[in-house]
């Protein structure tokens, strides 16, 4: 098992320098902030809008951090995420980062990495994919699942195979079609909605993101499977991975207060169920054999 690397954390105020809606109610937020340690894929930040925010900060995975710019992709689901998504440019938010344990990228070297992401679970896996590609590794399969076409953050999906649960209204092959090849024309958001279209070159299919996973893993017995997304999706994918005997890593979410292993509010049972692990510090990235998950 990989030892946890304790990185030096930074607690500071950051300035909002960018905000752009990439998908329906989901924003790319850029913060100007110097962190004392590099951020690795899977690590997160506790972010607290200082004005009109919630009592507690909220955890968000780091999409990217370089040159003093921290990028987050924030979906509005409640008061905290809404406050962050709507913090005006130039205003300040409190940032505590980097937190948690990252994907053990060294262990992935030379092995085919299969990524399965859903919703904002894209964020840590997007970073993992870009770190792997940057170091010359291959990422043969990057699968992204969303419910509707409006949930697609177009510019983040280059190189991802997209699975939609609901056929888009403007599906080129007409109603009731279950698959669309990228060559056959990409679905676009309803005109006038101002929402992004699926990226050129991406492949889009209607059906669950786990549809072909078993097939993929059968052909790649030495694969590493990395998962982040809604619980039901991760559990389904993790079961398939376990049945195929491949190594499975999951990036989990839990309600957090401190983000630092202190309040014990984000605990889950460790494998065997006798002890607890914190999602914020022992995770959020776990190997399937560390926890009681599926």
């Amino acid at each position: 098992m990989t030892a946890r690397i304790m990185t030096k954390r930074t607690l500071t105020d950051a300035t909002v320098t960018g905000r752009r809606e990439l998908a329906h109610h989901a924003w790319l937020i850029e913060l100007e902030v110097e962190l004392e340690a590099p951020v690795r894929a899977g690590q997160f930040a506790m972010v607290h809008p200082l004005e009109a925010g919630t009592l507690l900060p909220r955890p968000f995975s780091v999409l990217d951090h370089r040159d003093g710019r921290l990028k987050l992709y924030v979906k509005e689901v409640g008061a905290g995420s809404r406050a962050l998504a709507h913090t005006p440019l130039g205003e300040r938010v409190q940032v505590f980062a980097p937190l948690g344990r990252s994907f053990p990228i060294e262990e992935f070297r030379g092995r085919p990495v299969v990524l399965v992401a859903g919703g904002v679970g894209l964020v840590p896996l997007w970073k993992l994919r870009s770190e792997l590609l940057a170091s010359g590794e291959e990422v043969p399969h990057s699968l992204f699942g969303a419910r509707t076409i409006e949930e697609l953050p177009g510019e983040l999906l280059e190189g991802w195979r997209i699975h939609l649960e609901e056929a888009p209204p403007s599906a080129p092959s007409g109603e009731g079609s279950s698959t669309m090849s990228a060559g056959g024309g990409l679905p676009t958001a309803p005109t006038g909605s101002g929402l992004p279209t699926a990226p050129a070159g991406g492949e889009v299919e209607v059906g669950l993101v786990t549809l072909h996973l078993d097939e993929i893993l059968r052909e790649q017995p030495d694969a590493v499977l990395a998962l982040c997304g809604p619980d039901a999706m991760m559990k389904a994918a993790a079961r398939i991975g376990r049945q195929r005997g491949v190594q499975v890593w999951v990036c989990l979410e839990e309600q957090m207060a401190c983000g630092a292993g202190v309040c014990r509010s984000c605990t889950i049972p460790a494998a065997g169920g006798r002890t607890m692990k914190t999602v914020c510090q022992d995770g959020p990235v776990f190997s399937l054999d560390e926890i009681d998950y599926v």
């Binding site: 919630t54 009592l55 507690l56 309600q255 207060a257 309040c263 014990r264 509010s265 605990t267 889950i268």
Partner: peptide, 8 residues
Amino acid sequence: QPRLRELP
């Protein structure tokens, strides 16, 4: 779980 809830 749940162990913690935030109120206003």
